[in-house]
Simulated scan of single mutants.
Amino acid sequence: MTRTTTHHDDPPETTCDTTAAIDISTAAGELLLRYREALTSDDVEPVAFRKGADRVSQEFIAGELARRFSGDAVLSEESPDNAVRLGASRVWIVDPLDGTREFGEIGRGDWAVHVALFENGSLTAGAVALPGLGITHSSRDPVPLYNVVPSNPRVVVSRTRRPEPVMALARALDAELIEMGSAGAKAMAVVRGDADIYAHAGGQYEWDSAAPVAVAQAAGLHVSRIDGSALHYNQENPWLPDLLICRPELAATALEVLNR
C-alpha cells in the first residue's frame, strides 16, 4: 500500500518518526478494510458500525504509539483530551478514521487515516493513508509538482457542505468542482495533482488537518488558514476551523478571493 522513498539528508529521528507514521496509518487502514467487509451483511446497523470502526482504529493506533513512543503525548479525535500534551515537546495528532460517512458506504475510497507528529512547535512527520485506494502519502515521499495548473483549476468540495467563501472562490476561478469526502482525501488529491485547490471554511479540528498539512508542506504546496495566517497546532482548544491547501501558483488569488 505504501509508496516510500528515503531522503538521505533527513535527520535519523525524523526518518524514524515518519516511518512510524506511515507504518501505523497504513496498518490501521488495513485493519479498517478487514472490518469493512462486514458491510456486506444485512445485519449491520450503520451508526454502530461506524462507531465500531472509529474504536477499532483508535485502539490500534493508541497501542502502537504507546509501544513505540511511550513518552510522547497524543491528541486524537477518538480519545479524551489530556492537558499534559500542552507542555509536551512531542505530540502525535491522530484521526483514526477521517470520513466516517464515506467509510460506511460500499465502494467509496475517499476516507483516510491521519497520523502526524507535532514536535517543538512544528509538524515534523505526517502520513495520510487512503486504504480504499491502496495509497499512503507521507511527508517523507512528497510528490513532485510537475503538472501544469489548468486554465480552469480543479477545486475539491464536500459532498454535503459547501461554504459560501469556497463557492465564491470556485466561481471567481471558473473552477471545475470535484466532490469528495474526507479532509485527508481532499488534501491528498491536491498533493497527487488530481486537484489544484482544497479550501475549507466549515469548521475542523487539529486532527482533521495536521497530517494532511504535514504531507502537503513537504510536497511544496501552499498551506495556511483562509486569511493567510499560519496553522497552529497543539493548542488548548484544538478547534482549527478553516484551511487552504493549494498549488503555490494559485495561493495569492485564492487568498484574495477568500478574504473579500
Rank of each mutant, 00 (worst) to 15 (best):
I178N: 14
P241I: 01
G193Y: 01
V47D: 03
R55F: 11
L244C: 12
D43S: 08
D174G: 14
G63E: 07
G202T: 05
D174P: 04
G220H: 11
L65N: 07
P142K: 02
Y198M: 14
A168K: 14
A62F: 10
E105L: 09
P46W: 02
S224W: 15
R140T: 09
E59K: 09
Q58T: 15
G134R: 08
V113L: 05
I24W: 14
G193T: 06
E179P: 08
G104Q: 04
E102G: 00
V84L: 13
T5I: 14
A230L: 10
L39Q: 06
P241H: 06
G29Q: 12
V91E: 01
T2F: 14
H222D: 01
S41V: 02
D23K: 10
R154P: 02
E249L: 06
V155P: 03
P96F: 07
T100W: 01
L39P: 00
A73N: 12
E236P: 00
N82L: 02
S229P: 00
A211G: 11
Y35N: 07
R67N: 07
T4M: 03
R192Y: 01
Y146P: 04
T26N: 14
A252I: 03
A219Q: 03
V148C: 09
V84N: 12
W111D: 00
T14S: 10
S76V: 04
N120R: 11
H114M: 09
R67G: 07
